[in-house]
Simulated scan of single mutants.
Amino acid sequence: MSLINSYSQSLPQTSSSASNTTAVTKSSVQSTTTITGNTFLDSIRLPEESTIPEANDQLLKQEDFFALLSQQLSMQDPFEPVDNDQMIAQMASFSTVDGISNLNDEILNLNTVMSSSQALQASGLVGRKVLIPSDTGAISAESTGLNGVISTPSAIDTISVSIQDASGQLIKTFSVDGSAGGNIDVSWDGLDKNGLPVKEGMYSIKANGKVDGETQELAVSTYAHVSSVSLGTTATGAILNLRGVGGIKLSDVLAVSET
């Protein structure tokens, strides 16, 4: 009887203990900053801040390959194991892909070094004039005239040259001898048809001549003053900053003038 009564009296205590445990658990869930001292309850507390998973680049690395290889070896049929030649071929293929990836990284580094070296070499052009594939040049206090080159497909007796401002207004016309053919030098002194200096700004050289009996517009390139050099990017290379014109890739320069 004493055993039965002891057991019966312990039941409410057990229920009370369970209720206390439930209350503590609820309190732990509701309050994310309360530490109960119970290792198990503290471990199941809600996190104070949500964890954002890192972005997966979806690229297989060397660790992923060995993990797959281990899984393949562990799951293979013991009566028909993977052939050694196939295993070696798989490892050789992965080594090749890994080598190509490393080679690409080295090439990118090499391109960066070459871009810096190219910019350093191009810095020697600062203060000089370069020929660019554009018929437009700048007139300023430092450069009062405009020089260029007219490209002709064949010998032309007379080439008509016209100077236009940025709005397309005709400033002056004159003729040059194109009987030599090829590249014909052209120079404009920066004076209008009345012999007066023009205002500072952008001006274009237009040229045309008769080719096979028909009048055609001819390609014109102009000289521009290099004021500075920029590193640019791996794709563009060094950039020459031209006075009044803007930037141009070093690879687009047609010629370099002494002055």
Rank of each mutant, 00 (worst) to 15 (best):
L108D: 12
L108W: 10
N109Q: 14
N109P: 11
L110N: 14
L110A: 11
T112I: 02
T112D: 15
V113D: 14
S115T: 12
S115P: 03
S115W: 00
S115F: 03
S117K: 12
S117G: 07
Q118E: 13
Q118Y: 04
Q118L: 13
Q118S: 09
A119W: 07
A119F: 09
A119L: 06
L120Y: 15
Q121T: 12
Q121Y: 09
Q121H: 09
A122V: 02
A122I: 06
A122L: 06
S123V: 02
S123E: 14
G124F: 13
G124K: 10
G124V: 08
G124H: 13
G124S: 13
V126W: 08
V126T: 10
V126N: 02
V126K: 08
R128L: 15
R128V: 00
K129H: 08
K129A: 01
K129D: 07
V130R: 04
L131A: 05
L131E: 01
L131H: 09
I132H: 02
I132G: 02
P133V: 14
P133I: 10
P133D: 10
P133F: 11
S134H: 09
S134I: 05
S134C: 09
D135L: 02
D135C: 07
T136P: 03
T136E: 09
T136W: 03
G137A: 07
G137T: 06
I139N: 01
S140W: 10
S140A: 06
A141I: 13
A141T: 12
A141E: 09
E142Y: 08
S143C: 06
T144S: 13
T144I: 12
G145D: 05
L146E: 03
L146Q: 03
L146R: 06
N147M: 03
N147D: 15
G148F: 04
I150N: 01
I150M: 05
S151H: 08
P153V: 05
P153E: 08
S154L: 10
S154A: 15
S154W: 00
S154N: 09
S154M: 08
I156P: 03
I156R: 05
D157C: 07
D157M: 04
T158H: 02
I159F: 01
I159T: 03
S160H: 08
S160N: 11
V161E: 04
V161I: 14
V161Q: 01
V161P: 01
S162W: 01
S162G: 13
S162N: 15
I163F: 07
I163S: 05
I163Y: 04
